[in-house]
């Protein structure tokens, strides 16, 4: 058990360090690299400590396979040189940072005491069959609503961009 604890601390340290890296890296491409590393280590945590292989794999497929590639695509399209990406946010950056931290703190308080039994170090985890059974029976309405929401967001993005084409 002590081994798992050390392993958790190690992963948590990597996650936190790479999360800080996303913010403080000088060049946006390195921020994206940090983000990629962060998402992958989080996936390792899901896999090894929470017994959730499905969510770990989906995390890597969706985030590493699509979203960070998309970020990099946009960053490369702009191909910023040093000095071209000055900070235009100014003091707002600090205000927004504190706001994000407060929201995080609220989440921790709201969830504290509920997370016993979330951690199953070394277990093979629940199967995909059980997850899909829950998704299509008990949680079918929220599931479909979320997909509708994402669809509306995609259509909205196209509608907004269409004006400038």
């Amino acid at each position: 058990m002590i081994g798992w604890y050390i392993f958790f601390l190690f992963l948590a340290l990597l996650i936190l360090l790479s999360a800080v890296g996303v913010v403080v890296m000088r060049h946006p491409v390195y921020s994206a690299l940090s983000l990629l590393f962060n998402l992958c280590v989080t996936a390792v945590m899901y896999l090894a400590l929470m017994g959730a292989p499905f969510i770990a794999m989906i995390q890597v497929i969706v985030y590493a396979g699509a979203i960070v590639v998309f970020f990099l695509f946009v960053l490369m399209l702009m191909n910023l040189k040093r000095g071209e990406y000055e900070d235009k946010m100014g003091p707002w950056r600090i205000v927004l940072g504190i706001g994000a931290f407060l929201i995080f703190l609220l989440q921790v308080i709201a969830l504290s005491g509920k997370w016993k039994g979330w951690v199953h170090p070394g277990s093979r985890g629940v199967g995909i069959g059980e997850i899909s059974r829950l998704l299509f029976t008990r949680y079918v309405l929220p599931f479909e609503l979320v997909s509708l929401l994402i669809f509306v967001a995609a259509v909205g993005a196209v509608a907004l961009a269409k004006k400038r084409l």
């Binding site: 996936a43 794999m57 989906i58 497929i61 396979g65 590639v69 995909i128």
Partner: peptide
Amino acid sequence: NVAILYLLAVSSFSVYAIVFGGW
């Protein structure tokens, strides 16, 4: 039991070699 997903996840890293190499 997630071998196919694992393959998809792992193969998604091959693009980074090309993107980072190119940039």
